[in-house]
Amino acid sequence: EDAPSSDDLEQFAKQFKQRRIKLGFTQADVGLALGTLYGNVFSQTTICRFEALQLSFKNMCKLKPLLNKWLEETDSSS
């Protein structure tokens, strides 16, 4: 699987934040939901840093598919 470019990540982080707010979730909600869904709880700080593009590139790449999946799950259930 190709690693996303930093442009991709930036684009995704923006879209993710907009969708999250529109769906009415806090950063902490998302962190907990990831724990429920995938067994990895993320702190509010981590989600905040992801949205602000302040995580390392490697961590951004790791989180992106999880957050993407969460969006898909959340979209389909709302």
Rank of each mutant, 00 (worst) to 15 (best):
K58L: 06
I21C: 04
L55N: 08
L71R: 03
L55I: 00
E72A: 08
V41D: 09
T74Y: 09
S43E: 09
Q15M: 14
T45D: 15
K14V: 06
G39F: 00
T74H: 15
C48K: 12
L67C: 05
G35D: 03
D8Y: 01
Q54W: 02
G31M: 04
L63A: 02
K62T: 11
T45C: 06
T36Y: 05
T26E: 06
S77E: 12
L71C: 02
A13Y: 04
D29V: 02
K17Q: 13
F25W: 03
K64P: 02
M60R: 01
A52R: 12
Q27I: 13
K62Y: 13
L9F: 10
L32K: 13
L53V: 11
L53F: 07
M60N: 12
V41L: 09
G31N: 04
A13K: 05
E51A: 02
A33S: 10
C61H: 06
E1C: 15
S43M: 03
P4D: 09
D7K: 15
L23F: 08
S5F: 09
Q54D: 12
G24R: 01
L34S: 01
T74E: 09
G35Q: 09
E72P: 02
L55E: 04
P65R: 08
K69N: 07
V41A: 11
T46H: 07
T46C: 02
L37E: 11
Q15L: 08
E1N: 12
F25H: 00
N59V: 11
D75I: 11
D7S: 04
T46N: 05
P4H: 12
L66P: 02
I47K: 01
V30Q: 01
D2T: 15
K64F: 03
G24E: 02
N40G: 12
M60T: 05
E72M: 13
E72H: 11
T45N: 14
C61L: 11
A13C: 14
G31S: 13
T74W: 08
G31Q: 06
F12K: 00
T45H: 11
S77A: 13
D29Q: 15
L53H: 10
D8H: 07
I21R: 06
G35S: 13
Q54G: 07
F57S: 09
Y38W: 05
S78L: 14
D75W: 07
P65D: 11
G35K: 09
K62L: 09
T36C: 08
C48H: 11
K58S: 09
F42D: 07
P65Y: 09
Q44I: 04
M60D: 02
Q18G: 07
E51F: 01
I47G: 01
T46K: 06
K69D: 08
C61D: 00
F25C: 08
L32D: 15
S78M: 07
A52D: 13
K22Q: 12
G24I: 00
F57T: 11
A13M: 05
T74C: 12
T26Y: 03
A28K: 10
F16S: 03
D75E: 14
Q11T: 13
A3V: 10
Y38V: 11
A28E: 12
A3N: 15
P65K: 09
F50R: 01
I21S: 05
E1V: 14
T74D: 07
F42C: 11
L37R: 12
S5D: 15
L63T: 03
Q15S: 12
L23S: 03
D29C: 03
Q44D: 15
T46D: 14
Q11H: 14
N59T: 09
A33W: 08
P4Y: 15
G39I: 04
K64A: 08
S56G: 08
A13T: 02
S6R: 15
G24T: 01
